[in-house]
Design a protein around this nucleic acid. Sequence first.
DNA 1: GATGAATGAGAATTCATTCAT
DNA 2: CATGAATGAATTCTCATTCAT
Lengths: 220, 220, 220, 220
Amino acid sequence: MNTASTATTKTSQPRLRADAQRNRERIVAAAREVMVEHGAEVPLDEVARRAGVGNATLYRHFPDRADLLHHVTLSVLDRTADRAERALAAEDGDAFQALRAFVHAAVEERIGALCPLLSDGVDKDHPDLLAARDRLERAVESLMGAARESGRLRADIAVGDLMVAITQLTRPLPGNRCTDFDRFVHRHLQLFLDGLMAPARSELPGSAATLDGLRQQCRR
Amino acid sequence: MNTASTATTKTSQPRLRADAQRNRERIVAAAREVMVEHGAEVPLDEVARRAGVGNATLYRHFPDRADLLHHVTLSVLDRTADRAERALAAEDGDAFQALRAFVHAAVEERIGALCPLLSDGVDKDHPDLLAARDRLERAVESLMGAARESGRLRADIAVGDLMVAITQLTRPLPGNRCTDFDRFVHRHLQLFLDGLMAPARSELPGSAATLDGLRQQCRR
Amino acid sequence: MNTASTATTKTSQPRLRADAQRNRERIVAAAREVMVEHGAEVPLDEVARRAGVGNATLYRHFPDRADLLHHVTLSVLDRTADRAERALAAEDGDAFQALRAFVHAAVEERIGALCPLLSDGVDKDHPDLLAARDRLERAVESLMGAARESGRLRADIAVGDLMVAITQLTRPLPGNRCTDFDRFVHRHLQLFLDGLMAPARSELPGSAATLDGLRQQCRR
Amino acid sequence: MNTASTATTKTSQPRLRADAQRNRERIVAAAREVMVEHGAEVPLDEVARRAGVGNATLYRHFPDRADLLHHVTLSVLDRTADRAERALAAEDGDAFQALRAFVHAAVEERIGALCPLLSDGVDKDHPDLLAARDRLERAVESLMGAARESGRLRADIAVGDLMVAITQLTRPLPGNRCTDFDRFVHRHLQLFLDGLMAPARSELPGSAATLDGLRQQCRR
DNA sequence: GATGAATGAGAATTCATTCAT
DNA sequence: CATGAATGAATTCTCATTCAT
């Protein structure tokens, strides 16, 4: 499924020579890994070194950092969408459990690395990105819809809520050597998912009004 | 309470001239603000400029970035502990609600900026940090203890779970212009808190064993 | 006169520390020399080295190449204007000769280096530049006016004609080791000046019409 | 005449395949154009792109920049010599006018681009270059000889004087968008030519002695 | 003690040139 | 032969840190 679905969101490029294509993929993979580990600010020379290519090769493929981030983001979105679709396909009667499975699986795709998506340089409205996001959100929406219908998912939650939250909860800690990062992450996701279950246990601040009320409350 | 309690975690410094002390505080405040906005990687000259002092003055007070981060972290921890203690004092019968109030209030202290705490350069075992953390955790533990006793907070959650989670959920998005960042944040915290309520709705992966089980599940 | 007149076109800067001011001047001087020799494209590190400062010092004073060029240009304009004013003051009855003296003297100021003035990055409409140009053109105009009145300078020549022409004729040859560059230059200027004498020996193509005529002629 | 005379200065190359020969010429033509526009420092990839060939093709034909410059120079010299010979052939009684015609015509060949000729990398003593220069100078010498004999051209001017001067006067201004560049150029040439007419209006500094005298004069 | 200035080390990016298809 | 791809060396520019006033 991976290849097929991936192809869906990819714009047709001018045919690349086989070796160039391989390098291109290596670079994106290396960037994904190293940026997940050390943040989006890593020296691009480091990315190139990890990919096993010269720095200029990286620049040939991705003229600047923003362009590289764009493609890393696409890659993460695609892979995460694959996971969502897979979870959807594997659903076996417990819709909420399918949603849970997807959320925990998303960690493996380092979805926390999606944050660079929002960094200054990247064009969030680029058609490719919109398409990839769309595909992901559509799949997650399906998972959520089924869970909602099963009566296990509270009704006041949008797909955006979920995506941003799991992105934040899985963000790598700077400089972390991850010893038990995973353990924490999965605990947090589990707790967060518990909060998503019906019946709702609190009212969500969604309007400016409720938000302001909440703030008053905090002040004293 | 603020001043008194703050003093508690401060190690005794050699007496500073009044203006030097003021500069010192301005620098930490400026650093806290600018790092919250632009991440921990901001040029220190920028911090100095915001604080209205020369860069060399910053370096006189904080010999390197790690040292500055150390003090920013202390400051955030202290202020957040103030909030926790205040929430504790303001408790009026609903212990879980007091916990909720604290969590939402912590956003105002930009607790998400605590993440630099974990960055490479900072010594996480410095006595001052341990003390500040201790004070904060003690206060939050009190809040949680009361909530647990009231039967509203599930029992399988440690203070670390909560602190790391809210830190992550309130991390600033890079390059964000924050228009409705707050709205999202408070929604997520609300959902997360809902997940913390008793009765527990799922088992948390806390041991290596359950974690592995969870992973198996994700794989297919 | 030099210092006084130079001050005329300088905008008041915030007071610089004495050493900083010295560095600033050294850098401009070095840039003028090295750019005259090797063109405006020289590595800025080279300029810094020649000025005896670190490269970052250069960047502190002149944030980018365009800014440095701007100041080099100002410097050349100022020094050339000094020459023009000096020639004016030294006039002793032969106005055309005074003009000649200025033109040959301008070589010493490397007026050919003015060409960078026209390069892409520089703002030709910056007030400081306009002022410096104005001062120079005013002085040259005076020289030309006197020569015209003496009946030795043909009437159809504007100050711009002269300035651009001598700029071009004194442009350094790329990679030249200049042994007898000076000899050529002064010969060319002499010839060009001869062409400026009255009575006019040809009609100058100044309108589109005459220019087109000239082109036709060239075609066959 | 063009083809024949061009052949004269070309050393016999190993027979090239027709398409290779065409590529070679396209590259030189592209280089001439792009270097005239943007200076001799343009990226060679840009030249290749303009010529519609791959960069490696350029390198196959011209192993390095100096080699390409060499051939560009040859091309300009040849074309300019063509112009000179044509002017010579078209002479119709007014020898000085024929000289004028040639000078203005040389602009069209962008003779100002000859300056790269003198840049470091090029071997000015290469037989091909000497031959091309020779041919050009011989033709110009003929024009000048006739003009001298007609009594209209002053006697103290060598062919080198003229060639270097018109090269300088027609040098493209960096970053110029050429709107009225041509107008200026032709005006300057006209003035310069006027200075070449007999009777001489000044003594030319040709010896070290006269040059020094001139310098003294400039000093005060 | 406070400050502006100086600096070298390092990161991003470009480009001439070589290599593999 | 022609080409696109790869590469390292060079260049611009930034920034943490030190120095001189």
